[in-house]
Design a protein around this nucleic acid. Sequence first.
DNA 1: GCCGAGAATGAATCCATCC
DNA 2: AGGATGGATTCATTCTCGG
Lengths: 271, 271
Amino acid sequence: MNPPAPYYQHQGITIYRADCFEVLHTLEGVGAYVTDVPYSSGGAFRGDRMFSTLSKYASSDSSQQAGIGFTGDNRDQRAFLAWCSLWMSAARGAAADGATFATFIDWRQLPTITDAIQAGGWVWRGVGVWSKKFGRPRDGGFSGACEFLPWASHGSLVESGAYPSGAFEYSPPPVSRRHHLAEKPLPVMEWAMANVPAGALVVDPFMGSGSTLVVAKRRGLRAIGIDVDERQCEIAARRLSQDMLPGLELEDLDAGELEGPALLPLEQAEG
Amino acid sequence: MNPPAPYYQHQGITIYRADCFEVLHTLEGVGAYVTDVPYSSGGAFRGDRMFSTLSKYASSDSSQQAGIGFTGDNRDQRAFLAWCSLWMSAARGAAADGATFATFIDWRQLPTITDAIQAGGWVWRGVGVWSKKFGRPRDGGFSGACEFLPWASHGSLVESGAYPSGAFEYSPPPVSRRHHLAEKPLPVMEWAMANVPAGALVVDPFMGSGSTLVVAKRRGLRAIGIDVDERQCEIAARRLSQDMLPGLELEDLDAGELEGPALLPLEQAEG
DNA sequence: GCCGAGAATGAATCCATCC
DNA sequence: AGGATGGATTCATTCTCGG
């Protein structure tokens, strides 16, 4: 099979505007997958509002009550597991021996993701933690201060000479300064990719605004980003075209504004 | 039903030397469960789980294998899920409305524990993270720097006026200075119990060396600790008898040595 | 009591050998 | 074969101890 025509291609970095399955089936020799799977939306299953509603149910005490759409909740959860298992399996089919896999996820979907990782044939190796330092406070409960990075390998873990910590602390910039609602700050992405060996091909099946590619480019890695949304592809391409002199700190790149015509704001549905 | 005779009882703190089921079925009005369930973890290979806790978890570098191990750590996945569901369900049967539940666990068993929490009828609310700052390094992978604190409530979450963070960073003291191999430092326990409202009855079904009770006593809470191992009961009782003047810092209490005769190490057979 | 240099450590993991 | 055992490995942080 051949991949679709690239949306962007320059200096070892390629962007495809496509569903990830279309591209994953055409790849081989992938050394690492690093991504941020969408879990609060996703055209594959349901509209954003519907999913939010269900999440709201699940987060209330109403799961103990009668009359809630339990089957609907359940089916969404199952569909998410099935869909993740499928794309993770497709990803593994394109992976080189010893390839690594990592995706960001929130606490609620973490168990589903670790099931999907193993269902997809990956060897689950651990869970990294990104601490944002602050989360929304909760009277009588713990704030949601962390996001999780379950990671895995295709077969034996290959030594890369890197020993990243399982915990990383970094305060994210305000939403107003992000290119994407769920955007991961570049230092956080750099941490998540710290164990990727030199020369590896990195693939992000849910590219979003392209933080994975920006870090890959800085490190001189080959990389492929995939996103169904053309606006995200454009944003990512513009970020890659920015000045990336080594003297620039990642934080500065994060704060850099994109040149060119203004882009339409993203609708909520993209979160 | 009546509980067994207490092993220790003083100033609102009670210790039972018993299997937790024996006691849980006799309780009522419990405001919070805070515990550290035996992980039944220790490696991806079948054989690795079968070792004693000392050889599984204590540093293999140090030839000193003296110390106190603990029991009930050898269950396989299915049995661990079933057993946890049972005791969590029994615990919920004794819980007051709005009671909270929290247990420490490692990354490998986290999904199993969140399943058990929900199977036991609790409403899963989130996952706290204790960062030890440093874990054993892994070439090509992330270190295991964190332990996790999934938490839940019995029905609606009750406001307690406390807003603890979902992340807590603290370096544990070396094994040689602990009362229990898996002992949680007092500042970590204090964080894990930060949302427990004043006046609540706290129960720890797997007391170990009694850190939960020590923090409860400091906070003026009523508390019940349960452990099958009489040596742990004795250690906990001694810790509770130590000087706990408010002027003393928790770190100092951690470092305090216990008076009385030395304890025998646990035999390998029990591991 | 404070500070710096050197030593020790880790709720592992993986693999080569034994039985 | 397959389970059990023993040993080598890793480095940021903490601990120990002397000055």
